[in-house]
Every structure is written in C-alpha cells, then in structure tokens.
C-alpha cells in the first residue's frame, strides 16, 4: 500500500526519540568535559618514564642508552647522559626531554627500550597555549611511578614486572654462578700437578 513505508519510517524515528530518554543505546553521546569514556587498556598517547620506588629521580629505570632517541621516527626525544665529577658516564639521564608537539604516539620508543624504562601513557587533555612550556616535557614531568603504570595498564605492567623479576633472578643466579666459578677459579682444587 502506498504510504506504509513512510509510516514504518516514522515509527522507527519515534522509537529513537522515545528511546533516547530511556535507553542508553539510543543516546550514546558522552558529555565530554563533564564525563569521559574510560580509555581501553592498550590505548596510548605519549611516552612517560617509569621509576621504581618512592623517589622519582633516583628510581628512574632509564640508563640513558639513547636507543629510543635513535629509533624515534620524528626525533622528538632528546637525551644527555649524566656524568659524575670525574666526567665519567653514569647510567642515568641528565636531560630527558620529549617534545609532545612532535611526538606521533607510535610507541616505538617503548618497544625498543631494553630496560622497560619508557612506556606509553594514556593522558590526552594536554592542549595548551604555548608548545615550549606546555608540550616540551622534561624528565621531571615525564617520570611516573610504576604504581601509576599498574593503574593505567595492569596487564602489561604485570607482565613487565614479571619479566624484570625473572631477569633479576637470572642475573642474580648468573652472578652467583659467576661468583662461584670465580671463587672456584681463584682457588683451584689441589690436584696432581706433575
């Protein structure tokens, strides 16, 4: 019959209107500044530096190996290694800057880091008026605790922690074995010399 299609359409839109007051499915809009969507665990934006323990600077995992700086495609990472009073390199960054206005959030830095020191954050409300004060971020602002890492990405952080613990155990075992070997070498069993 002529016009039944129109009536069906009208019914559907009426269901949308009424449903938008009652069902969440028919009004999925999130009122952004007041309410936000909880981000997915593997949602990533900018990198941050993980530290262990309670103090940020001494606890940084970063050893200033500069792999991330070399790998970074847009080259937004800038690192200067710390040196002690004898001008000897220390495994700690003196300067670690990331230019968020250049960073393209690819996550390669986090992938290549052999020390699990740099990870991807999920912050996104970074709009500012000046890129040099707001978006050129130094190591103090980049440093975030392992606890925070666990909060934003529990699965990944647990895996990393497990791996680090395993590495540590292996390293300790290796050290122990080495020490034992060294001890054994240092004191060779007295055998027939001939």
């Amino acid at each position: 019959m002529l016009g039944t299609g129109i009536l069906r359409g009208l019914k559907e839109t009426a269901r949308n209107v009424i449903g938008s007051f009652r069902e969440k499915d028919r009004l999925p809009t999130v009122m952004y500044p007041e309410e936000t969507v909880k981000t997915k665990e593997n949602f990533r934006t900018f990198p941050f530096l993980v530290y262990d323990g309670d103090h940020a600077m001494p606890g940084l995992r970063c050893v200033s190996c500069r792999i991330c700086e070399k790998e970074c495609p847009p080259q937004c990472i800038f690192i200067i290694q710390e040196r002690d009073e004898n001008n000897k390199a220390v495994k700690h960054p003196r300067v670690f800057d990331i230019d968020f206005s250049v960073c393209m959030q690819c996550g390669i830095c986090a992938e290549v880091c052999p020390f699990d020191a740099i990870k991807m954050d999920n912050i996104y409300e970074l709009a500012g008026e000046d890129r040099f004060t707001g978006l050129l971020v130094d190591k103090h602002r980049l440093a975030k605790s392992n606890h925070y890492y666990h909060q934003i990405k529990p699965t990944e952080a647990n895996e990393v922690d497990g791996r680090l613990a395993e590495d540590k155990r292996k390293a300790e075992e290796a050290a122990k074995a080495k020490a034992a070997a060294a001890a054994a070498k240092a004191a060779p069993p007295p055998t027939a010399a001939t």
Partner: peptide, 10 residues
C-alpha cells in the same frame, strides 16, 4: 533538539 533525538544525539 527533536532532530537530535531522532538521530540518537541530545
């Protein structure tokens, strides 16, 4: 507002 509700937005 009505068109919005019809199109599932406020």
């Amino acid at each position: 507002k009505g068109l919005g509700r019809i199109q599932n937005r406020p």
